[in-house]
């Protein structure tokens, strides 16, 4: 079962990387850019019978290693096989 973990810095934690990327985009003419924060995508394939079961396991993974609760929040989203292929096709 494939799920996607999105890890992002918690609100209030300064994202210096995002700020640098934002400055670069403004320099490229994107003056309408209001805010930008950089996060991480972690695609996980876990041996589970259902999405909720996979979600439970991946939630444990997030708590144990994938996210640092001091700094980061995370969300877990189911991934359709077709959408993964679509992402690859774009590359």
């Amino acid at each position: 079962m494939k799920v996607r973990v999105l890890v992002r810095l918690r609100p209030g934690i300064m994202d210096v990387q995002g700020a640098a990327v934002q400055r670069a985009l403004v320099g490229l003419g994107f003056g309408d850019l209001r805010d930008l924060r950089v996060g991480k995508v972690i695609d996980v394939d876990v041996d589970a019978s259902s999405v909720p079961a996979a979600r439970v396991r991946v939630d444990e993974m997030c708590k144990k290693l994938l996210a640092n609760p001091v700094l980061e929040d995370y969300t877990i989203e189911p991934v359709e096989a077709s959408s993964l292929e679509a992402t690859s096709a774009l590359r």
Partner: peptide
């Protein structure tokens, strides 16, 4: 030590990058 929870807090990217 912070990641292991043996000390509180975390260490982030330097503000100056």
């Amino acid at each position: 030590l912070c990641e292991a929870g043996l000390l509180p807090g975390a260490l982030l990217r330097n503000e100056c990058l």
